[in-house]
Amino acid sequence: MIKMQVIGNLGRDCLVNNVNGRNVINFTVAHTERYRDSQGNNQERTTWVECAWWTDRTTVSQYLTKGKQVYVEGQPDVRSFTRNDGTAGAALILRVRELQLLGGRGDAATAPATTPTEGTSASDITNTSSSNASSVNDFDEPVDDLPF
């Protein structure tokens, strides 16, 4: 089995479709990598991943809106196609097994922090807010005394 993990922002609001009696939530995730090239210039490279989450738990779709940061994990696949101009193209597809909402534009404290995977129930979803996260200043020890 090949497993892929992506952290990125949703490129548009998700779409909920019904295919042969099963629900699928389709969305795209953009992961942007920032780096310096050999001349020292700042560069950016964005990779778009098309995601398909086959699930009956479609209530999470209200939280999958453009700009939200998510963590998705699943099995990757590559789809080949021919563009209108006749050139070959390929798309990176991810069949989602796990999804976690991390944040993004317009965060609300009422949004679920994680969504259930296939083996869990909807009551297992927990609500968290960003105020529960500790910051570096919450610790009594000086930051410069790290062992590494």
Rank of each mutant, 00 (worst) to 15 (best):
M1A: 12
I2E: 11
K3R: 13
M4F: 15
I7F: 06
L10P: 06
G11I: 02
G11V: 01
D13N: 15
D13F: 07
D13C: 05
C14M: 05
C14T: 05
L15T: 12
N17K: 15
N18G: 02
V19M: 09
V19H: 07
N20C: 06
R22M: 13
N23Q: 12
V24L: 05
I25V: 10
N26L: 04
V29I: 13
R34A: 07
R34C: 06
Y35A: 10
Y35V: 09
R36W: 04
R36N: 15
D37N: 15
G40E: 07
G40I: 04
G40Y: 04
G40K: 08
E44M: 09
E44T: 11
R45Q: 15
T46D: 08
T46K: 08
T46E: 11
W48A: 01
E50Q: 10
C51L: 05
W53D: 01
W53L: 13
T55G: 03
T55F: 01
D56I: 00
R57E: 02
V60A: 01
S61H: 01
S61V: 00
Q62H: 08
K66V: 02
K66Q: 13
K66T: 06
G67M: 09
K68Q: 12
V70A: 05
V72G: 07
V72Q: 02
V72D: 03
E73H: 10
Q75V: 14
R79Q: 14
G86K: 06
A88E: 14
G89N: 08
L92F: 07
R95W: 03
V96E: 02
R97T: 06
L99W: 01
L99C: 10
L99H: 02
Q100F: 04
L102I: 12
R105D: 14
R105N: 13
R105Q: 14
G106M: 04
G106W: 00
A108N: 14
P112I: 00
A113P: 00
A113T: 01
T114I: 03
T114F: 05
T115A: 13
P116S: 11
T117W: 08
T120D: 15
S121P: 03
S121L: 10
S121T: 14
S121E: 12
A122Q: 12
A122W: 05
I125M: 15
T126E: 13
T126V: 10
S129M: 09
S130L: 10
N132V: 03
A133W: 03
A133E: 09
S134I: 02
S134E: 07
V136W: 06
F139S: 14
D140T: 10
D144P: 03
D144I: 04
D145P: 00
